[in-house]
Amino acid sequence: MTAVIMDGIVLGLQFGILGVGLTLVYGLGGVLNLAHGQMAVAGAMVISRLTDGGMGTFLAVAIGIVAVGLLGMVIDLTLMKAVYGEEGEGRTLLGLLLMLGVGFIIDGVLEWRYPIEALTLRVAGDPIDILGVSMRRGSLVASAIILLVGALLVAFFRLTTFGRATRSVIQDENGARLVGVNPSVVRTSIFALSGILGGIVAVTRAMTTPVGSTDGIELTIFALIVAVVGGLGSVSGAFLAGILLGIVSTVSAFYIGSYITTIILLVVCAVTIVIRPSGLLGVRS
């Protein structure tokens, strides 16, 4: 049982950071990035192609992560301009549809060009015992990276001026404008950050399981579930929900069967919406 829960935490940390990327962009501009997982997978494919071509792993990983960040920035500066011109429901709907389209395009291109490509990042070394459970190095390194990134994110949002400005736009956009924050700059930067987080998800996931070229939609759905359960717009909520759902996922896979885990996750999501519509730690009512 301990082993199952430990695996759940490893998976949950990945879920968490996946959800954070989605929730930030939604909280800031009302855009539900339905291409989040596909963007992450695109980063994985960049890394995979570069390493196949003989490039060193670290450099390839860095380029792959930056590439997803740039993709996010470009999407924000082009497609999303039209979205931010809209208000309320129109904005949400247009953003959602455009990003759905972007997701289909990335998915289609990857399936067409690299149908059987998958990224695996092997972390050498023997398993390490933690609480009597033998954990693979890959899982530990992946989790350590995510915890570090999580800590950096918390420090960024709590302690830096720009991090505060980001939270101000999430909490009250007009209030943010009145104190001198330019929401467009914040949104573009955070869309890029969200892409970088997507790239990190792809990399850490590849340390535990192969990331295939067509896994994007599945990742997007996980991100969506995590963000909704955690509360759209809440970073700590996404992390909390990620870990909870990771444990739910591995426990149900172990005791019932892996075929049913996605269904169970969706049920958890639905129940959350009914009981607590704003999510565990949601900031929007």
Binding site: R164, R167, S168, Q171, D172, N174, G175, A176, L178
Partner: peptide, 12 residues
């Protein structure tokens, strides 16, 4: 400008 609705950051 200080608006009538204040537009504070409620969770800060």
């Amino acid at each position: 400008y200080v608006p009538a609705e204040r537009h504070l950051f409620p969770q800060m």
